[in-house]
Amino acid sequence: MSTVLEAARPAIATPRAAPLIAVRELSKVYPTAKGERVQALSHIALDIAEGEFVSLVGPSGCGKTTVLRILAGLIGDYAGSVAVRGRAHCGPSREVGVVFQDANLMPWRTALANVLLPAEVLRLKGQEARAKELLAMVGLAGFERKLPGELSGGMRQRVAIARALLHDPALLLLDEPFGALDAMTRDTMNVELARIAAASRKTVFLITHSIAEAVFLSDRVLVMSPRPGRIVEEIAIDLPKPRGLDIIADRRFADTVVRIRRLLDGEGTAQLPSIAH
């Protein structure tokens, strides 16, 4: 195996800084209409250090969004513990910015007014200039006064990213933010996201279906099993940062992508039990 993968384990044992997020023994059961119980998550543990970029990959329906919603404070009834900066996490926090799988813009608000929504909710004054800067940063300068109905799916998603950044949260939670984008815009957005995360020293937790995207952006990639979701592997990406798109040609990059691909395809299933503990 390549050297990128060797450092996989120690990441949790010796976090580089005090963890911003510490999750232990997290389980989640959804009650369904028929009275059945859907076990979405099972005994998840994860740490996210301050300033770290962590991605979560896993098959569809394995519980990724559930993890994100719990971190966002949108789901309250779970088992286990979630701590932010050592304090028990309950409910939403202004330290967190969320980008959901759908853009979820208010269709009656212009792009600019949508970006300004957090300022209204959190009663922050004078954020107009910052909102315009953020729109420019996501490549939407000049689209401030457009309504969501006049924007493409990818543009809407970029407005949602600008909105999540407005109140300058320490932690950015992204749920497949680029799923709706074409490959080229997606690459651009990935480079941009890496730049934003590094420049603003944000902690980022990214859910994605794209392994290449996860490897390109992350310090660490967590791999989840099918439902009930468990974290079956944790891979530190020691490729030097900042990374350019040319890193795709790097041997270690390709090796890591293939390794994660195998884990997800179930080729690694036989070794899963040993990895899980």
């Binding site: 966002a72 939403p92 969320v98 959901f100 813009l105 208010m106 929504l117």
Partner: peptide
């Protein structure tokens, strides 16, 4: 009501009244 828009507001800690005015009623 579109649940996604409500999630955006709730994740910011918006009050039920704010959710009503900013998402549900429109």
């Amino acid at each position: 009501t579109n649940q996604g828009r409500l999630d955006v507001l709730r994740a910011l800690g918006a009050s039920p009244w704010r959710c009503f005015i900013a998402a549900k009623l429109p």
